[in-house]
């Protein structure tokens, strides 16, 4: 099955079979500065207990529907 799938994929899809979809060459100048800036100022957003509870409820509902089929 894997051989069939790999033959079927287009060149674009075939390229995405590497673990990483891209590699980053050495950055200089503006590109380097912007990466350093982003990695200084960006922030992982908080995840509230309510959002987590909502997601768990959704997961349970999906799994129950699946089990009831």
């Amino acid at each position: 099955m894997c051989e069939e799938n790999e033959k079927r994929v287009t060149t674009k899809e075939g390229k995405s079979m590497a673990v990483s979809m891209a590699v980053i060459p050495t950055l200089r100048g503006k590109a380097a500065n912007s990466v350093l800036e982003t990695l200084s100022t960006s922030k992982i957003k908080p995840y509230s207990p309510e959002a987590k509870a909502d997601a768990e409820k959704m997961i349970n509902e999906i799994l129950q529907k699946r089990d009831n089929k």
Binding site: K15, A18, M21, V23, L39, S40
Partner: peptide, 21 residues
Amino acid sequence: EIEDSFNEKCDLYMVSFDNVE
């Protein structure tokens, strides 16, 4: 820069790990 030496056309997204809330 990535476009010139990539495996697949895609955009880089990133986030700092310093500021986790």
